[in-house]
Design a protein around this nucleic acid. Structure first.
Length: 852
RNA sequence: GCCCGAGUGGCGGAAUGGUAGACGCAGCGGAUUCAAAAUCCGCCGCCGCAAGGCGUGCGAGUUCGAGUCUCGCCUCGGGCACCA
């Protein structure tokens, strides 16, 4: 008798798959295609268990679809540009390129033992000149189509990383990577016109039926559509050229409650005034200093300065209001100016209270005599109000209808127009970094900013750079910047900014369809393989990466690089949960916890200890992180249990969209099960041929049930349930006393159904049972519908909705027959106590309810 | 503040409006063993000796029947946030 030995069988089958070319994706017009993609990794140097879960999910889908007869594309690549490579160079010496490619080699070496069905011939890294050269070529296309532009902008400057950050990369006023307080600087930057697509990107979310509702909502909120009124106040005592002040409001129904106007410190009027008035200049400078820092947001102190200028109410010439410069008005939303209605907006209320401005109410709660002026009154959606100072047509109550009516009324009076605004801003892509895709433009004294000629692409990063001082090494390079103007040929200077790494990941899915072509894509490959049928990754990319990709696919379509159908590149999206682990700590000398890795800790029945017996505090189950040391290394797991065990475990227990807790006990259990299945196959192999089979029918039914259930649950991305069904089926085989051929067929089907999760074990059983060819190439088994229906059903009997008994009857028995049997049932007789039931409900094949 | 989502045994989690707790972990009992490990068999929501009763965060409602649908709360989690 032999043993299940993953260390021996796993490499063996990986080699067999490779030799048979099982996973090479081929365009096959005779087959339907299926493109499954997991979000590609950043080459940090080591894979972690979260990668294992992510890629196993994709692999389950890929292997399953392949068995179902699809021509499957399942590629892998590397999101290889970015700051960590430069940080490593700065901290430890060496070169970002060497560091990155070294890490890639290492991680590829760690991924291969997982036995993933990946077409490695399509592998690329975004830092390959072959890839980023195509990206540069598209950047030039985008320039031609007006999809990218340069502008002076106040940007978020990260003083530690010495680079500009997109709004999306600023979290609570801090750089998303460095955590440093972000400053405001004015620089000339490249922008993608994503905001031109706001409406389209928003509307198209409705079509993303197979995306998680959560992600769709997050994207919709991020795009942030609002409908409102834009109108102009006429001004009094304003400088020349400022006789009108445009404002935007989403609450035109409160226009009669106006009390003041306020403009952003960055508003043109404020900028004009600061040149002539030192007090204003000082105030504006103070506002800029505070900027977006978290401290300022937390204090949330509304500060304003009266400009001495006034505006006239659009419906009353005599009604004049002061104009303030206020620190909470954003220049890049709406017009950078607002009217304040303190009675119905809490922020305006606070402001008015502070500066002693009037608080005229527009409406009161229905039934209320007078307005309550202790705080702003903002009615709830369903609340009804009574207008005390509206304009005509105010019988409309609240909410959207009131806003629409107010817009219509104002438009009718020639005051402003209805306007749709979006929160989404253009995407600033310039980064003052070395390890990124160079922006392929040239600065010529005569011609200005000129795109590089496509035949000169790729504009390749120079290798000989130094990281001994902060900032962008490209700026300091002695010769790299020098070039000829693509237009006039005169000596010129290259742009030294590189692109945001989110650009790299915005089109890699398209590149996988023709990864080595000398154009960004190839029409027939993109036509065949796009779209991605199933995309799988972390929820942390719900907004940025996915929104940028949706924009980029549209831009690529406009430039002829993608077919129309691919403007929404991901048909279905799945966001998987994280892998978590308990934390272990002891108290250090200074009272702070000292963390311990799971390897150093022994779990006991009621606690945990270190090797020397020191008791350890068991902390909460959280995401694996280096700082808390609650990390397990996939390589250790594979060495100890084998890849199939790791794959089986990360797919079991928790639903895939939720977090799963890694426990040693769980891993042990997974391995026990795989060993049991392997041993079961071994045992069936040595059954006597002539063994009579009393349970043949039962096992055959269990088999078809398993085929049906596992197929359904895999289709529905419910891998934890698929695994539960596989346990049930394995239990059924183990208990069965069916004849050898039936048992043999059952174990082979079990192997097939397990093969997406545990492909090596499945191959081994298949071969052991004499299966033909490789299981990886065998067609998915089909359930016989006739074997799924039972002749007899167990019918629960409820009395007043509580289950009290059950009967077994033929499935097709008519209701009248069932009623007779039910009324003769002991429990029913006892409950009726001689009386007749009020009602008797028979749901055929399901349940019986006796109402007394 | 605004917008979402989730609350089910000791734990992870199952349940087209129809037997709540599938499957797994942990636990308990037994077989095997000189003993253990491994393996196998069985039990396993709570109260109760039992009959029986109670059970899906809390409170109402709809229904013959509610974990599931409706309304109102509570708690936890996530996203956005000076967005006018």
């Amino acid at each position: 008798m032999s043993r299940y030995d993953p260390a021996q069988i796993e490499p063996k089958w990986q080699k067999a798959w490779e030799e048979a070319g099982c996973f090479t994706a081929r365009r096959d017009p005779a087959k339907p295609k299926y493109y499954v993609l997991e979000m590609f990794p950043y080459p940090s140097g080591r894979i972690h268990i979260g990668h294992v879960r992510n890629y196993t999910m994709g692999d389950v889908v890929a292997r399953y679809k392949s068995s179902c007869g699809f021509s499957v594309l399942h590629p892998m690549g590397w999101d290889a540009f970015g700051m960590p490579a430069e940080n490593a160079a700065m901290e430890r010496g060496g070169h970002p390129k060497d560091w990155t490619y070294g890490n890639i080699a290492q991680m590829r070496g760690q991924m291969k033992p997982l036995g993933l069905s990946i077409d490695w011939s399509r592998e690329f890294a975004t830092c390959d000149p072959e890839y980023y050269g195509q990206q540069q070529s598209m950047f030039i296309d985008f320039m031609e189509k007006g999809l990218v532009y340069r502008k002076n902008a106040v940007v978020n400057w990260d003083p530690v990383d010495m680079t500009v950050l997109a709004n999306e990369q600023v979290i609570d006023g801090k750089g998303w990577r460095s955590g440093a307080e972000v400053e405001r600087r004015e620089l000339t930057q490249w922008f993608f016109r994503i905001s031109d697509f706001s409406g389209e990107l928003l509307d198209a979310i409705d079509g993303l039926k197979d995306w998680p509702e959560k992600v769709r909502l997050m994207q919709a909120n991020w795009i942030g559509k609002s409908r409102g009124l834009q109108f102009a106040f006429s001004t009094v005592d304003a400088p020349e050229g400022f006789d009108r002040l445009e404002v935007y409001t989403t609450r035109p129904d409160t226009l009669m409650g106006a009390s003041f106007a306020a403009i952003s410190p960055d508003h043109p009027l404020a900028k004009h005034l600061e040149r002539h008035d030192p007090k204003i200049a000082e105030f504006v400078a103070e506002c800029r200093r505070i900027g977006t820092s978290e401290e300022a947001l937390e204090k949330a102190e509304k500060k304003g300065l009266d400009t001495g200028i006034h505006v006239r109410h659009p419906f009353d010439e005599a009604w004049e209001m002061p104009v303030y410069i206020a620190n909470f008005i954003l220049m890049d939303y709406g017009t950078g100016a607002i009217f304040g209605c303190p009675a119905h907006d809490q922020r305006d209320f606070d402001f008015a209270t502070k500066y002693g401005l009037p608080i005229p109410p527009v409406f009161v709660a229905e039934g209320a005599e007078e307005a309550d002026l202790s705080e702003a009154y903002v009615p709830m959606k369903s609340e009804r109000v009574r207008y005390v100072r509206g304009f005509a047509g105010d019988e409309v109550q609240t909410g959207e209808a009131a806003v629409d009516a107010a817009i219509a009324f104002c438009e009718g009076k020639g005051v402003g127009r209805g306007v749709t605004n979006y929160r989404l801003r253009d995407w600033g892509v310039s980064r003052q970094r070395y390890w990124g895709c160079p922006i392929p433009v040239v600065h010529c004294e005569a011609c200005g900013v000129v795109a590089e000629k496509k035949e000169n692409l790729p504009v390749e990063l120079p290798y000989d750079v130094s990281f001994d001082q902060p900032g962008n090494p490209l700026d300091r390079h002695p010769t790299w910047r020098d070039c000829a103007c693509p237009k006039c040929g005169a000596p010129a200077k290259r742009e030294t900014d590189t692109m945001d790494t989110f650009v790299d990941s915005s089109w890699y899915y398209a590149r996988f369809t023709a990864p080595h072509a000398n154009t960004p894509t190839v029409a027939e490959d993109a036509d065949y393989w796009m779209n991605v049928d199933q995309y799988i990754g972390g929820i942390e990319h719900a907004i940025l990466h996915l929104l940028y990709s949706r924009f980029f696919a549209r831009a690529m379509h406009i430039c002829g690089h993608l077919p129309k159908k691919a403007v929404e590149p991901f048909n279905a999206l799945f966001t998987q949960g994280m892998v978590t682990h308990e934390t272990y700590s002891t108290k250090g000398k200074d009272g702070r916890p000292v963390w311990h890795t799971p390897d150093d800790v022994t779990r006991t029945a009621d606690g945990a200890t270190l090797a020397d017996g020191t008791p350890v505090d068991i902390g909460p189950v959280i995401k694996m992180s280096k700082s808390k040391k609650n990390v397990v290394d996939p390589m250790d797991i594979i060495a100890r249990y084998g890849a199939d065990t790791a794959r089986w475990f990360v797919m079991s227990d928790s639903p895939p969209e939720r977090d799963v807790e890694w426990t040693a006990a769980g891993a042990e259990a997974a391995q026990k099960h795989l060993t049991r299945v392997w041993t079961l196959s071994d045992r069936i192999g040595s059954l006597p041929d002539g063994k009579p089979g009393t349970g043949d029918e039962d096992l055959a039914r269990a088999m078809h049930r398993a085929i049906h259930d596992v197929t359904q649950t895999i289709e529905g991305f419910a891998f934890n349930k698929a695994i539960a069904k596989l346990y049930e089926f394995a239990n059924a085989i183990q208990k069965s006393d069916a004849s050898k051929p039936v048992q043999r067929q059952a174990i082979m089907v079990l192997a097939q159904l397990m093969s997406p999760m545990t492909p090596h074990l499945a191959e081994d059983i298949w071969a052991h049972q004499g299966g033909e060819g490789l299981i990886a190439q065998a067609p998915w088994p089909k359930a016989d519908p006739a074997m799924l229906v039972d002749d007899n059903v167990t019918l629960p009997i409820q009395i007043n909705g509580k289950r009290r008994a059950e009967i077994s009857v033929p499935k097709e028995m008519p209701a009248s027959e069932v009623e007779k049997i039910v009324l003769a049932d002991e429990a029913v007789i006892r409950a009726l106590n001689g009386g007749a039931p009020k009602k008797l409900i028979v749901v055929p094949g399901r349940i019986v309810n006796v109402v007394i």
